[in-house]
Nucleic acid binder design. Structure first.
Lengths: 246, 246
DNA sequence: CAGTGGTCTAGACCACCGG
DNA sequence: CGGTGGTCTAGACCACTGT
């Protein structure tokens, strides 16, 4: 028996429908490469208009759970494509998705004058004020995975304390809960580099070992840059995963 | 004067409208953080219904050219977010986007029994037949950028010859033109590795130099795997670029 | 309050696919 | 041919924003 749509729910109907269908896919009620009911059938099953049906399906197609074939039908995607990777995630979320327990050791936290390169990424004018710096060793299941250096722009009255970071772990979570700042978009680059003696010591590897360097500029829901993050991952422990479309 | 929508064009109206707006953004007629006309205004300007207007705007929002704010309006995204990166591209397209001229030296081309790992990525059963192997040094402005090894699954009657590859350069272009096979989705991983003596010689670097290893499984418009590609990029010459959303 | 985007309806015609 | 998804219309009401 299909779950039904509640017109009075606070969630929009297309969103409720997407949740119902996604649930059925996760349960295995709908199997890979099998067709789901046609849009006209779904109209009568759930008593919503075809526009709303299509909005729900559009969502699931973009999320990689369904695919359409013109003139044939709408089908369930194979497992592999259902992961929804290449999303903007915090280190904390990333580790959890990989089945590891995230952890950290705080190296430094405080306000600094950002280096020129960082200032440019943050789109700050020359000679502008200080930004919050947080430097941490990031752990996965207790083992060092990388060194993370975050530069964060906050309004004057807002700040993050060492206690916040120690308690919560995830800065994204703090930003969201304390300041309603939601990371929405980011530009990221990845390249190869070699460990300096200091980095090697922190990561417990030999100096000159290969590292994966990620640099990210993050935008809030207001389309303003609020963060520049650099993560140096141990080359032997970390692999970047992306899902590409066209 | 705004360009107009032709109802008899072979392109759908929402798509024509998206092109018109994208063009105006590229021209600078619409500036970053400035609002575009409201959806009701666009209705009268272009004589199409609001649904169609919204479909066009949805497209441009997903492509990163516009952003919406509920109750305020729809605005032009800042330049940086307009690049539309993190798309599924061939090496050839990737180089062009970076402003470099793509090139190649073919090392090997022919049918082989795929290694187990490759066979699994291609979702082929144990003991299945041979697949097409193409190994090339890829160049950007004539300089070695990486070594690309492609394993391609084709139907029995289809094949790609050395001449095809030499003439066209891009395998994706050949697949599209000869077999109407369109790369649509891909899973990609990136990690760090060190150059073996053979790789170092081919890339004209020291053995043990750091490399960026990309492995990609590519799906066609029929949601079937048709390709597994491995590219070893020179760590000092290549940087991976991604755009993340949430 | 008026104006914006967000959701939704009940239709319509088209292009494509399979039998 | 009938059924599928793809596009489109002309409305409607809601939630949110600014003044």
């Amino acid at each position: 028996m299909p779950e039904l749509i509640d017109p009075n729910d606070y969630l929009p109907r297309y969103y409720q429908l997407a949740n119902i269908l996604r649930e059925q896919i996760a349960n295995g009620k709908l199997e890979a490469h099998q067709p789901i009911p046609s849009e006209r059938q779904l109209e009568t099953i759930y008593s919503v208009s075809r526009t709303t049906i299509r909005q729900a399906i559009d969502l699931l197609v973009r999320q990689g759970f369904l695919y359409r074939e013109h003139g044939r039908g709408t089908f369930v995607s194979p497992q592999k494509l259902q992961k929804g990777i290449s999303e903007l995630t915090s280190f904390t979320e990333d580790m959890k998705q990989r089945g590891l327990t995230p952890g950290q050791k705080i190296l430094e936290i405080g306000y600094v004058q950002p280096p020129d390169k960082v200032r440019q990424h943050l789109e700050l004018p020359v000679g502008s004020g200080k930004v919050l710096l947080i430097e941490r060793i990031r752990l996965g299941d207790g083992v060092p995975m990388g060194i993370q250096t975050s530069y964060i722009c906050l309004a004057d009255e807002q700040t993050i304390t060492r206690e916040d970071v120690e308690e919560q772990g995830s800065i994204y979570k703090i930003l969201q809960e304390k300041f309603h700042l939601i990371p929405t978009e980011a530009d990221e680059t990845l390249e190869v580099t070699l460990a300096t003696p200091r980095e090697a010591a922190l990561l417990q590897i030999e100096p000159g070992s290969p590292l994966l360097l990620s640099e990210r500029t993050t935008y809030s829901q207001f389309r303003r840059v609020f963060e520049f993050v650099k993560i140096l991952y141990r080359g032997d422990r970390y692999r970047y995963i992306a899902k590409l479309t066209r």
